[in-house]
Design a binder for these strands. Structure first.
Lengths: 125, 125
DNA sequence: TATTTATATAATTATTTGCTTATTAAATGA
DNA sequence: TCATTTAATAAGCAAATAATTATATAAATA
């Protein structure tokens, strides 16, 4: 799980309509038309939010004739949260994504004479 | 913690620049100018993201002369994640925010003759 | 078969967000 | 005191997002 996977999942969670849909799906899996009836929102609005959440992995769908049955993936959510906390505990040096940042931070920490932001743009030595 | 608190926190996490800043703050608390040096990003960009994260409670600041020292609030994050999982396990009837939705869902579930989405707009009976 | 139901998707518009540049202000130092 | 460092904030703009309306399609049903 990389940084952009987290972004996708947290983007999916960071919107009120989507959180409401997720809460309803936590009661029980539902069809789109049920969500529509319960939330009193337009069908495209609900479908579009469901597509975003499906893309992030927080819900799954199962076709049933002309209807689609959506379920909350609470275990996946739980796993994601634990992974993020672990991500924050990981050594920066082991995250290839942060290679450059790691080098610059090491230079910053090893050199006590360093001026943080000098005239002449972002010098770290 | 209500739905909009969650939205604020997850919005704060659902952005790549902010997640990068948080990862760096997980190594150790930092000044804005240090984040700037390490990330090679403009100072306003970093400050603006920090304000959003401060508003969501995921970082805290401490003034030190002309500098500002930012810390990751990992315990708060951890608590938030646990709270959200709990939120999904709560009985819908105990969430005032979902009063209307709860009523409509109960009607839906109690009446087996219900047509999900009938002609004549969102009828649930 | 024609109509209705269920859902996805496209097009459009309005709002929000993220970034840059510019400005301000406070603390530091020559 | 005047220049520098640090950081917040404002203004402006481009890109992304969320909602509506309009279509399209497939399955169910009268």
């Amino acid at each position: 799980m990389n940084l952009y996977d987290y972004v996708k999942i947290f983007k999916a969670l960071g919107e009120p309509t989507r959180l409401k849909i997720l809460k309803l799906l936590s009661v029980r899996p539902m069809f789109v038309c049920e969500l529509k009836s319960v939330l009193h929102m337009s069908q495209p609005r609900i479908s579009q939010h469901l597509q975003i959440m499906k893309g992030a992995g927080v819900v799954t769908e199962k076709k049933d004739a002309q209807r689609t049955f959506y379920s909350l993936q609470i275990d996946y959510l739980d796993k994601t949260f634990n992974n993020l906390i672990q991500f924050f505990h990981h050594d920066l040096a082991n995250l290839p994504q942060f290679k450059e940042e790691c080098l610059r931070l090491e230079r910053l920490d090893s050199d006590t004479d360093v001026y943080l932001c000098k005239k002449g743009e972002n010098r770290t030595r």
